[in-house]
């Protein structure tokens, strides 16, 4: 049983205040959706939790099972059980997918996986996400399409088995088939009930496949409304306009 607790988080980028006091608690077994218009600060929230150096924390706390993540380095946060599926995964030339995954799994588990076991897990994970096994030998994200990158983010999540996963617009840029495959991956991941998911999205589309327990509307760098899955339906019908006006 794990808990991610975000308390009054304030974040600036290049001296510009972006997050203005975010409060949110995610427990294992729960799926929270954060929905908001472009530029509202959703990615800022995701990156700040993960520890991207570009984002300056100006106030607040982020606790994972009581441990202040903000005190930890980026890799320590990941090893503590945090995972961020990125909106725009970067291409890393010269580092193969399989080599990268083995290094990551080794780091997170604290010991190298048995080679055969790892190969089996990798193969299984790739099959489930309809990823061509040849990708294992390719350079990380290099020349991958948008959809292929997103599938690999989910593959990493399934292999690393974090306590809390933050998924930043994993649905954007996916066609319907890819969206279904990726959603199934997320559902497999959360079916254990031992993990929490923070699903950041601009559109309600993915929520038809991955049903959230809680929906938070994000605007102007803070949560402006909260509710159940029905809130997503309302957003679908009415859009973000009322919130952007209010927060401006």
């Amino acid at each position: 049983m794990s808990t991610l607790e975000i308390r009054d988080l304030q974040v600036a980028v290049e001296d510009k205040e972006i997050l203005r006091g975010v409060n949110l608690t995610v427990k294992s077994g729960q799926t929270h959706a954060i929905m908001g218009p472009n530029g509202s600060g959703k990615s800022t929230l995701a990156y700040a939790i993960a520890g991207h150096p570009k984002y300056t924390i100006t106030g607040g706390q982020v606790l994972l099972d009581g441990v202040d993540l903000l005190e930890l380095s980026v890799d320590e946060r990941a090893r503590a059980g945090l995972f961020l599926a990125m909106q725009y995964p970067v291409e890393v030339p010269g580092v193969s997918v399989s080599n990268f995954l083995r290094s990551a799994v080794t780091a997170v588990r604290g010991e190298a996986p048995k080679l055969r076991e790892f190969a089996k897990d990798l193969k299984g994970g790739m099959d489930a996400l309809s990823i061509d096994p040849a990708f294992a030998q390719r350079n990380l994200n290099e020349g991958f399409s948008g959809g292929e990158k997103k599938r690999h983010e989910i593959l990493q999540m399934e292999l690393l088995k974090p306590k809390i996963a933050v998924l930043d617009e994993t649905d954007s840029g996916l066609d319907v088939d890819a969206l279904r495959v990726v959603s199934e991956g997320i559902n497999r991941f959360r079916s254990s009930g031992e993990t929490g998911v923070l699903l950041i999205t601009h559109y309600t589309r993915i929520l038809r496949y991955v049903t959230p327990d809680h929906v938070h509307v994000f605007a102007g760098g803070r949560i402006v409304e909260e509710g159940g899955p029905e809130l997503a339906e309302k957003l679908e019908a009415e859009g973000y306009e009322q919130y952007t006006k209010a927060s401006a």
Binding site: H52, M86, V92, V95, S103, A104, A107, Q156
Partner: peptide
């Protein structure tokens, strides 16, 4: 950052 975010 990307590699570190995966625990490396």
């Amino acid at each position: 950052f990307y590699l570190q975010a995966r625990g490396i």
